[in-house]
Design a protein around this nucleic acid. Sequence first.
RNA 1: GCGCCCGUAGCUCAGCUGGAUUAGAGCAGCGGUCUUCUAAACCGCAGGUCGCAGGUUCGAAUCCUGCCGGGCGCGCCA
Length: 562
Amino acid sequence: MQDYLKRKLRDVLDAFDDDVPDDFEPELETPANPEHGDLSTNTAMRLPPHLKRPPREIASDLVGRLRERLDPERIRAVEVAGPGFVNFRFADDYLWNGLSQILAADDYGRTKAHSGQRALVEYVSANPTGPLTVGHGRNAVLGDTLANLLEWTGYEVEREYYFNDAGRQMRILAQSVRARYEAFADPDAPTRPIEEDGNIEEVPASFPEEGYRGQYIIDIARDLYDDDPDLLDADDLAPFRDAAEEAIFTEIEDTLNRLGIEMDRYFNERDLYDEGRVEAVLERLREVGVTYERDGATWLRTTDFGKDKDTVLVKSNGEPTYRLPDIAYHDDKFARGYDRIVDVFGADHVATYPDVLSALDVLGYDTDERVSVLVYQFVSLVRGGEPVTMSTRAANYTTLNELMDEVPSDVVRFFFLMRSPNTHLDFDLELARERNEKNPVFYLQYAHARISSILDKAEEVGFDYNAEPELERLTHDAEKALIKELLKLPDEIAGAADMMAPHHLADYLRDVATAFTAFYGDCHIIGEERPLAVARMHLALAARTVLANGLAVLGINAPESM
RNA sequence: GCGCCCGUAGCUCAGCUGGAUUAGAGCAGCGGUCUUCUAAACCGCAGGUCGCAGGUUCGAAUCCUGCCGGGCGCGCCA
C-alpha cells in the first residue's frame, strides 16, 4: 500500500508543476492518532519552498488530483488535515483482500526488493581464546537476526565468522595452557603470585604475562595431560595451541547452537596470508601512495582521512597489525562479489573501522554503497534493577553459556534484540527469568499459543478452513484494526532490515499481539453463526501467521501451547 | 584534551534517518474484569519543563551551537 500511494503521489507531482524537484520522494507514515487516518503524507508541507504556495493550498490541490486516480477499492477517503497533511483511509475491500493474501502465503512478510542480490553478514568473529561472553551474545544475536531480516527482503545471505588463530593472543593462549600443563606434569613446579582487581592468585612460574586465567585453561591442560603426558619434551607450543583452539571452538559452536545460530562459514585469517592477499593489498596501498615507512614500520596515512593520527599497518618486527589483514579480508569480500557487506561489532571498535573503510575506498571500492556497519553498545547485567557486581564489566566476564543456563535462549535472544543497538543495554536477569506478563517474550509467545489453542478448539467444535471464508463479514472495529496491524508486517520487516534495527520488529510484534488480544476480547469465534465464525477463524489464523513469521525472523520459538 | 554513543513518565526504553496534527509503550502504582475460545490476559485512572541554555523555522524530543551528566574508545593489542 505504501508503494502504491507513493507511486500515485509521484504521478500527481509529475503532472503538477515543473518546480517539484525530480528527486523528490514522497514520505508516508502511520499517524499516531488513528482519527487521522491509516496513512498520512507531509508532502504538501515540504513543497512550499519550491512552489511558493502555502501548504494547505498545495494539499487541497493534491487531494483533488489524487481522488481521480486512487482506486476506491483500496482508498476510501483522502483529506486535508492540520497544517497541510494529506490523510488516507483504507477501504474495507483493501483490508479483506489483504487478509486473503496473508492467508494465501505461509511466508507472509517476505518481500522481493532485493531478490537476486547477495549479502554477507559477518558477526561474532571472536578469536578462540576463551568462551563467548554476554557481550559477544549481543553481537551474535544482532548479526543473526539482521541476516534473517535481509533474507526476508530477498537477499541471498551468507553468515560468516572471522577468526585469527595465528596471532599474539593465540600464542599467549598456548603458553597459558602449557604453563598449566606443566603444573600437572610436576605438581611441585614453582609458582608466582599475580594480582588483578585486588585479588592475588598463585599461577605457575612459567605462566605468561597477560595470560588467560580462566578455569577452562586448566581443564584443557588436564585433558591434554591425561591424553599425552610427554608433550614437554619437544619444545613446541603447537600441540597446546591446537588443543586449546579445538576445545574452545567446539564450545563456541555449541554456544552459538544453543542460541539457534549456525554459521555458513568460519573464515580463518590465515587463508589471507596463504593466498598472498595480505601482501597484495599492502602492495596496492603502497602503489596508491597512502603508506609510508617510519621507525621500521609501515604506516597508513589515516590523517588524510580525517584522523588525528596515522596508523601502523606493519610493525617494525615485520608482523602486520590486525588492520592490514582486516583490509585484505574486506578486499576478499568485495572480490567475492557481494552486493551488500555487513559487519557487526561493538562500540569499542568504532574508532578503528573507518581506517579499514578508508583503505577500501582508496583501493577503489564503493564502501558507502556496499558496506554497512552495525555497531552496538555494551551490555550490563542487572538483577532486579541493581547492577550485577563489577557493574558493566560483569557482562564481559560472564559467559553466554552461564547466561543461558539461567535464562531460556528465546529470552536471551529477545532481550538482546529489544533495544536499539545504539543504546547501552541493561539485561535484567530477574526479569528475564520470570515467566509472566512482565516478561515481553512470554507476552508474544502466549499470544501465539493462545491463538493456536483457540483454532484447535474451533476445529474440534466443527468449524473448518475448507469453506471459502466470507471475509467481508469482518466489519467490527477490532477486526479491522487487527487486519490493518497484520498488513504492516512486510513493511515492518523491510524497514527493520533497511535501518538495521531489529528492535522495530520486536516492538511491532507486541502491537500485533495487543491488537489480537483486543479482537479476542471483543469477538468470539465459537458460538457465532457459522459464516462469521469461519471468517474470524481465518483472521485468527492470519494473526498467528504474522506472529509466527515475525518471531521466526527474530529467531524465537512460537509455541503451540504454553 | 580529542572522537563516537546515550540523557524522554518512579524504572527500562520507543520515537530522532534534513522537523510537523494533542510526546508513546512496557513494568511499577491505583481502581475494575474469569458459570462463555488460555486471566501467562484485558479495561480504566494517574504519571513527562523530552538533561540545561541559546539559535534556525509558521512549527523542534527530532536540525545547529555551547554547556552539564553517564558510557566507550583514543597502542608497533584485537
